[in-house]
Design a protein around this nucleic acid. Structure first.
Length: 282
DNA sequence: AATGTAGTCAACCGCAGGCAT
DNA sequence: CATGCCTGCGGTTGACTACAT
């Protein structure tokens, strides 16, 4: 079916076609990639005659035409992984996508927004969450031992400050950053690289839940240690927090998910207390 | 059967980082 | 070293579809 000239209004802007791709355009692009490989997207229009910007070509290829794409619904396993990785990395869709072979960042992003933006996790999510939290709790005791060891060393370098000096309140102008730093994102380039590596090691295989756990939990530990140091032993409990307290239950659950899991919300947390709660997510 | 609403998906935009010149 | 270009990422928008009323 020919792409209807709907929605995007104009079909051509500055000589570039916009809007839905036609099958002919797809064919041209696929053929181009087959011959020249991925990359050099800006040269696609010159070489193929496609009236599409390099950006548009790349997007079309990555999100739709790539042969290794897995079409169809997100499976429960994938859903679990998405949930867990999002908790670990936040809205780093491309990073999450690397752990889900055949899935694109766009797909995952859309899925997340569809399923969790409104704060209503599915049964699968609930199960995955419960499973994950259980395992996390098991790790907690081990981590506390590690923490004690680490704290001994940290005490030499940093004041233990005893007051949890670094709370959301201290970062009023960067509320989401607090969450990002403490929970979602590795708080150092080294950790970030580690995270990337950890994810990358699993590219070649279909990640099932256990695989995800295998690399996530070490990461969580790393974050935990780092976070604890970073936050002066305050709320940075990372893996070490309890499930029920963090997520609430029943009807509130939705709202809680909405605010805690949606790191991209303009206001991530409603108040300082919640902010602290958000930071203890992991 | 018609209409309204919510969910899903594809595509665009702006920004930032990396790299080549 | 500075600049410009290219690529990739995350956020947002809009159309289509399915479901409910």
């Amino acid at each position: 079916m020919e792409a209807a000239p709907l929605g995007w209004g104009r079909q051509e802007v500055d000589g570039w076609r916009k809007g839905p791709w036609t099958s002919q355009e797809d064919t041209l692009l696929v053929e181009h990639v087959r011959q020249h490989g991925e990359g050099r997207w800006n040269s696609v229009s010159k070489l193929t005659g496609l009236k599409r910007s390099g950006k548009s070509c790349r997007l079309r290829w990555v999100n739709y035409l790539r042969p290794d794409l897995k079409r169809g619904k997100i499976t429960p396993q994938e859903e679990s992984i998405i949930v867990q990785l999002h908790a670990l990395w936040g809205n780093r869709w491309s990073t999450i996508a690397r752990s889900l072979p055949g899935r694109t960042d766009n797909e995952i992003k859309n899925y997340w927004r569809t399923h969790f933006k409104k704060g209503k996790p599915s049964k699968n999510i609930e199960r995955a969450r419960a499973r994950f939290l259980k395992q996390r709790q098991e790790m907690q005791s081990q981590q506390q031992q590690l923490l004690q060891l680490a704290a001994g060393q940290v005490a030499k370098d940093e004041n233990q400050d005893g007051g949890g000096a670094r709370t959301g309140a201290d970062d009023d102008d960067r509320g989401s950053a607090v969450v990002d730093d403490a929970c979602a994102a590795p708080s150092s380039p080294a950790l970030a690289a580690e995270a990337e590596t950890a994810a990358g090691h699993h590219h070649h295989e279909d990640l099932i839940m256990h695989d995800a756990m295998d690399f996530m939990c070490p990461m969580s530990c790393a974050l935990l240690l780092h976070g604890a140091v970073h936050q002066g032993g305050g709320t940075g409990s990372c893996c070490g927090s309890t499930a029920s307290d963090e997520y609430g239950s029943g009807e509130e659950d939705g709202a809680t998910w909405g605010s805690l899991w949606n790191l991209d919300d303009g206001v991530v947390v409603d108040d300082v207390t919640t902010a602290a709660g958000a930071c203890t997510l992991w």
